[in-house]
Simulated assay, not measured.
Amino acid sequence: MSQPITRNKNVMVLTAAQALGGASPPIVIALGGLVGQQLSSDPALVTLPVSMLNLGLALGTLPSAYVTRRFGRRRGYVFGASIGVVAGIVAAFGIYLASFAVFCAGTLIAGFYAAYVQSYRFAAADAVEGPDKARAISWVMIGGLVAAIIGPQLVIWTRDLFPGTPFVGSFLSQAVLALLAIPVLLLLAAKPANTKAQSSAAPTRTLMQIMLMPRYMLAVAAGTVSYGLMVFVMTAAPIAMVGHGHSVDHAALGIQWHVLAMFAPSFFTGRLMARFGKERVTAVGLLLIGISAGFALAGLELFNFWVSLILLGIGWNFGFIGATAMVTDCHTPEERGMAQGANDFLVFGTVAVASFFAGALLHASGWQTINWLVFPAVALVLVPLVWQAGRKG
């Protein structure tokens, strides 16, 4: 019998690191569009800072996979956290200078840090065996619960820390969080006992052979749609809330409830996958994302925004964690680096496009159009996913 997940040191260290590193994106998401409104003269570019975060995440997936494979996960993750420190300082400096370009550079660098943080879930899965993999992924994502509280609350507590330059303090706090993650990550075991044996073996298949597997394609598509739609809607939500008469604090709290909903189900998502199967849980997640769009379309009251964001978060949790677990079933230990890296590159590359498109579409067509587009994207993946789940009985 395998030991409890909570007794696995690496899983617990990665959970703590996720709590600190996972707080960085909510700060950018909650404030990126609002700072963009202050610094950019083009309304269509106000969400560019959030798009740059997601672009950095996409561009950073393959280099971060190489760094952690070449130098080990502990040193690679410490290097990633150091990038996070730089990101917060650059973004804060951009606001201080009233330079939209410098601020966007800071959020781009934050994306590089986020690429390392995103791979914590795979590192946790690799630290355990068999059915414990889904639970390990869920445990690391539980660290996001703390992140959900830290990020938006730091926005509220520190946004006026420096009089005359709002939000500088929020991005300096982002740098502090990354700095605090470094001693935590130093506790990570340098290498699992079997890493050397695994790394010495050559992959049995090429990346193209893996990518052409129907199960891998479906897992990547499910992760892409779950994450892409979540970011597509969440990027526009704070600007839409403020634009329809709600306060900045209400927008930040809406993001906090959303991020809490993203990670709170992680306490039982792994058990649900063990009981009902990864495909069924992923399908329920996509269905919830569709329902969240329905609530958003039902009205513009604070209730509609918040309920929609909460359902969007729960749907993301089931959809993305389920898709991640599906990916781990599609490769051998020798193939994991390229299979996981390719998955994240495809997922977060799409996410970057979605976040940029959200800003332009919100400006051109409005909040309702963004939510109407959720339904066809969900249907595109939900149909084959339900079919696959039915085949597995």
Rank of each mutant, 00 (worst) to 15 (best):
residue 1 M to T: 13
residue 2 S to Q: 15
residue 4 P to W: 10
residue 5 I to N: 09
residue 12 M to Y: 04
residue 17 A to H: 05
residue 18 Q to A: 04
residue 23 A to F: 06
residue 26 P to Q: 03
residue 27 I to T: 05
residue 29 I to V: 15
residue 35 V to E: 09
residue 38 Q to V: 00
residue 41 S to H: 14
residue 42 D to S: 10
residue 45 L to T: 14
residue 45 L to K: 06
residue 47 T to L: 15
residue 50 V to P: 02
residue 54 N to M: 11
residue 56 G to R: 14
residue 57 L to K: 00
residue 61 T to F: 04
residue 64 S to G: 05
residue 65 A to R: 12
residue 69 R to N: 14
residue 77 Y to D: 09
residue 77 Y to V: 02
residue 79 F to R: 00
residue 90 V to G: 13
residue 93 F to I: 11
residue 98 A to C: 02
residue 101 A to Q: 11
residue 104 C to M: 12
residue 114 A to W: 06
residue 114 A to I: 04
residue 119 S to P: 00
residue 124 A to F: 07
residue 131 P to D: 15
residue 135 R to Y: 02
residue 138 S to H: 01
residue 139 W to G: 01
residue 146 V to Q: 01
residue 149 I to S: 04
residue 149 I to V: 15
residue 152 P to A: 06
residue 155 V to E: 06
residue 158 T to A: 15
residue 158 T to Y: 12
residue 161 L to S: 13
residue 163 P to F: 00
residue 165 T to L: 08
residue 167 F to W: 12
residue 168 V to M: 08
residue 170 S to W: 08
residue 172 L to A: 08
residue 177 L to I: 11
residue 179 L to T: 06
residue 181 A to G: 02
residue 192 P to M: 07
residue 193 A to P: 02
residue 205 R to N: 02
residue 207 L to M: 04
residue 207 L to Y: 01
residue 211 M to E: 09
residue 213 M to W: 04
residue 215 R to W: 01
residue 215 R to K: 11
residue 216 Y to T: 05
residue 218 L to M: 14
residue 219 A to G: 08
residue 221 A to S: 15
residue 232 F to I: 05
residue 232 F to H: 05
residue 233 V to G: 01
residue 234 M to E: 03
residue 243 G to Q: 04
residue 246 H to L: 15
residue 260 L to E: 05
residue 262 M to R: 00
residue 264 A to Y: 03
residue 265 P to Q: 04
residue 267 F to I: 01
residue 267 F to M: 01
residue 271 R to D: 07
residue 279 E to Y: 08
residue 283 A to F: 01
residue 284 V to C: 09
residue 285 G to K: 13
residue 288 L to Y: 07
residue 296 A to T: 11
residue 297 L to C: 06
residue 305 F to H: 12
residue 305 F to D: 12
residue 308 S to Q: 11
residue 323 A to T: 07
residue 327 V to Q: 04
residue 328 T to Y: 03
residue 335 E to C: 08
residue 336 R to F: 08
residue 338 M to N: 03
residue 339 A to V: 13
residue 345 F to G: 13
residue 351 V to T: 11
residue 357 F to Y: 14
residue 364 A to M: 09
residue 365 S to L: 12
residue 368 Q to P: 03
residue 372 W to S: 06
residue 372 W to I: 14
residue 377 A to H: 09
residue 386 V to G: 07
residue 387 W to M: 10
residue 388 Q to M: 11
residue 389 A to T: 06
residue 389 A to W: 10
